[in-house]
């Protein structure tokens, strides 16, 4: 099973260049259609599940706007 992950894009840095959108192997990134950042760009965002934490998006991001997390299930605590 592929790793499970998520990304968080920092709106302050994002310039909506679309490079992350174009390289994501699972196509879970879009430029937010309804949202603008302070510079008037539609920032990138993860819009659906399926991120595999490969960091390809972060690797091509010229504005170092993306943080990538790996998600690992935590065993249920006994009460």
């Amino acid at each position: 099973m592929p790793a499970k992950g998520k990304i968080v894009v920092n709106d302050f840095y994002c310039k909506a260049c679309g490079l992350c959108v174009s390289v994501c192997p699972t196509q879970v990134i879009q430029l937010a259609p309804e949202r603008l950042n302070v510079r008037g760009y539609h920032p990138a965002e993860q819009f659906q599940d399926g991120c595999i934490a490969c960091a390809t998006c972060a690797m091509v991001c010229p504005d170092a706007a993306i943080t990538v997390y790996r998600l690992t299930p935590v065993a249920e605590q006994e009460a």
């Binding site: 960091a55 170092a64 990538v68 998600l71």
Partner: peptide, 18 residues
């Protein structure tokens, strides 16, 4: 529940500037 581990983040040698 998921534990979050940072795989990649903005390097600290960059200033917090656009």
């Amino acid at each position: 529940q998921y534990k979050e581990t940072v795989v990649f983040e903005r390097p600290t040698a960059l200033t917090p500037t656009q």
